[in-house]
Design a protein around this nucleic acid. Structure first.
Lengths: 114, 114
DNA sequence: TCGTTGTATTCATATATAGGAATATACCTG
DNA sequence: CAGGTATATTCCTATATATGAATACAACGA
């Protein structure tokens, strides 16, 4: 998994931008207005998101309409998949661990009490 | 979606730690050895991961065995789900946008040629 | 061409944090 | 209790970056 992508969405305002673009493509000014951010900051965040491959833009007169790219999200999804696969077994193992742990605690208390 | 969780895995070494713990629970020293990191750094990263709710530890003598928590990953999965839902429609819309754009370009070129 | 609108960039500053070194803390064994 | 092992914390420094302010750049309309 790519930390560039994760880093891009780990910043609160960028996450909000992404969630806004999830609803519909938007020009920079509209993003700034809706999220109550200043335009230069939005442009900078979009630059980072763009470099991370999360968004693209197409020009419409002076505007630049930004929209999401699917691929990075799919990559994140594939990464999560590797966790889902292991998850069930792991939880079982964990329960075993915890049971063992509890048994040990009981034994220790018994031992201490002697 | 929670940026604390994202921030936690956005750091390369922490991501490696998470991926290592995905294989099996491990004590700090083992993580340090396998990832060729210094022990204090690993402890610090684990602290952050712990505060973000991604890991927990149970004691085993002097060791602390760290293991992953499922919930934050499930939350991330649910967040991604909101994208998957929109994805298909969005791609169609995008195609429409792009078609419109291309049409506009053609018209502009025609106009410029006059 | 000029003014306007929309966006990007540059520069400076403040803040956050990753890493190194040293040390503290906790627990085990003899 | 002493020594050893495993982990956590503290202090310091360097680096990254989010923000604000000012400005540059680009494209439109009159």
């Amino acid at each position: 998994m790519n930390t560039t992508m994760l880093n891009a969405i780990a910043e609160p305002n960028r996450l909000r931008i992404v969630e806004l673009l999830r609803e519909s493509p938007s020009p920079v000014g509209e993003i700034a207005t809706k999220l109550k951010l200043r335009q230069p900051q939005v442009s900078k965040h979009l630059r980072l998101l763009s470099e991370a491959g999360l968004v693209r833009a197409y020009p419409n007169a002076q505007q630049r309409i930004y929209y999401l790219q699917a691929e990075p999200f799919k990559e994140l999804d594939r990464w999560l998949e590797t966790f889902r696969k292991v998850w069930k077994d792991r939880l079982d193992n964990l329960n075993d661990y915890m049971k063992e742990l509890k048994e040990e605690e009981k034994l220790n208390k018994k031992g201490a009490g002697q």
